[in-house]
Amino acid sequence: MVKMMENLCSGVLMVLALIGVSWNVVMVTSQQFPAMYVFGDSLTDNGNNNYLNSFAKANYVPYGVDFYEGPSGRFCNGRTIVDYLGDLLELPYPPAFANPFATGKNILRGVNYASAAAGILDETGKNLGERFSLSQQVENFETSLNQLKRQMSEQELRQHLAKSLVVIILGSNDYINNYLIPSLYPTSYIYNSKDYANLLIEHYTSQISALHSLGLRKFFLGGVGPLGCIPNQLATGLSPPGKCVSFVNDMLAMFNLRLRSLVDQLNTQHPDAIFVYGNTYRAFSDILDNATTYGFNVTDRGCCGIGRNQGQITCLPFSVPCLNRNQYIFWDAFHPTQAANQILARKAYTGSPSDCYPLNVKQMAQL
């Protein structure tokens, strides 16, 4: 077994050398990562917005109908992608930062800073009330860091941060709530789609750099999925039946391409760290294109919701969702079911370079 691990790591390092990435290798034998720190939006929010004055909340049934805690603030019928990823990493679910119990020893295995309606830009989601933007989430991490400093020596903390996994999944709201609704925001009148993608990447880069400067070293950066295929966009009627809204997906391709290039740039600039691009767009498109293979029968509407494609109004309190939830890709107008989240988590954990570039999460843990 030891020999197999040595061969695996040697192969990984050879691949990294070919793409010009290098760093000090630290073998983790007792655990894959000591902690997981999550930054994001409603795709990964596990209850932060419960404590904010926001319209973007999921602390009521039918949300959580298949989750052991019931409605927890997760925008899903059950577990999110980071919940499943935590299961694969044998990590406990990190507490929501805003939860009063997210203090002391309770944050030693990680914290979830994700906030529904949040985006890369500070103004994203302002129409829905309070939320933790990416820049605020970074500040919240600094608050947690101050608590960690009181529980570890300087060397212990440095090693803890360097070995921990950072998951950032953001960008969807910057398009849904900003660029695609010009009546709420003038963004789409100011920027063409290429310039807007560049704007997002510029802001994204500064916040990632801030987290790196604070000591974090292993980053999984999830791209934006095919938003033109979600029930909310299908409900606009801007595409023929059975087709995704192509112009929306074309815009996202620009952002994702820039994000993948950013990963190469960051790996070159910071040889002490590893940055991975999670190709959410490809992974989710694969599920849509091969739905029956993955066990899904319904691909174009939410399990709960109102209006065309069950995507015009999201799950209302005490509404009755579909019974065959594992056969639905989408839970509501915007979010996947836990069945789809489980597949996405597996692709992030052990996926090929087409799903995770240049490494998957399991390979990251071995460095």
Rank of each mutant, 00 (worst) to 15 (best):
S352H: 04
K347T: 09
S354Y: 12
R346V: 13
T350D: 12
P336M: 05
Q342I: 07
H335W: 11
G351P: 12
P336H: 07
P353V: 05
Q342P: 02
K347V: 13
P353G: 08
T350E: 12
Q338G: 04
R346E: 15
N341R: 05
R325W: 00
F334R: 03
A333N: 03
F330Q: 03
C322R: 07
Q327E: 15
Q338V: 01
P353I: 03
K347E: 11
A339W: 02
C322L: 10
T350V: 13
P336V: 04
F330L: 02
A348T: 10
A339S: 15
T337D: 02
D332I: 03
Y328W: 09
L323V: 15
A339C: 08
D332S: 06
I343R: 12
A348N: 11
P353E: 06
T337P: 02
R346L: 13
N326H: 10
H335A: 11
S352A: 07
C322G: 13
D332K: 03
T337Y: 04
R325G: 01
A340G: 09
I329Y: 06
A339D: 01
A339Q: 00
F330N: 02
I329S: 10
A340D: 01
I343W: 11
T350R: 11
N326Q: 11
S354Q: 10
S354N: 03
G351F: 01
T337M: 01
A333H: 06
L344H: 09
L344Y: 08
A333S: 15
L323R: 14
N324T: 13
A345M: 12
I329K: 08
Q342L: 13
I343M: 07
S354T: 10
K347D: 07
D332V: 01
S354F: 08
Q342S: 15
H335F: 13
A333W: 02
F330P: 01
G351D: 07
L344V: 14
Q327I: 01
S352G: 02
N324Q: 14
A340C: 13
F330V: 00
Y349R: 05
A340Y: 01
I343P: 00
G351L: 06
A348Y: 14
T337W: 02
H335L: 10
C322W: 07
S352E: 09
I343T: 13
S354C: 06
P336Q: 09
A345Q: 11
Q342F: 03
R325Q: 08
S352I: 08
K347Q: 14
I343Y: 08
N326I: 03
Q342V: 06
L344W: 08
Q327H: 11
T350I: 14
Q342D: 12
S354G: 04
P336I: 03
L344I: 15
P336A: 10
A340F: 01
R325A: 07
D332L: 00
F334K: 06
A348F: 13
R325V: 13
L323Y: 11
I329N: 07
T350Y: 09
G351N: 04
N341I: 03
Y349G: 03
A348Q: 14
Q327D: 12
Y328A: 04
A339G: 03
P353L: 00
T337C: 00
F334A: 07
I343A: 06
Q338D: 14
T350W: 08
C322K: 10
G351A: 12
T337A: 05
D332W: 01
H335C: 09
P336W: 00
L344T: 10
W331F: 15
Q327V: 02
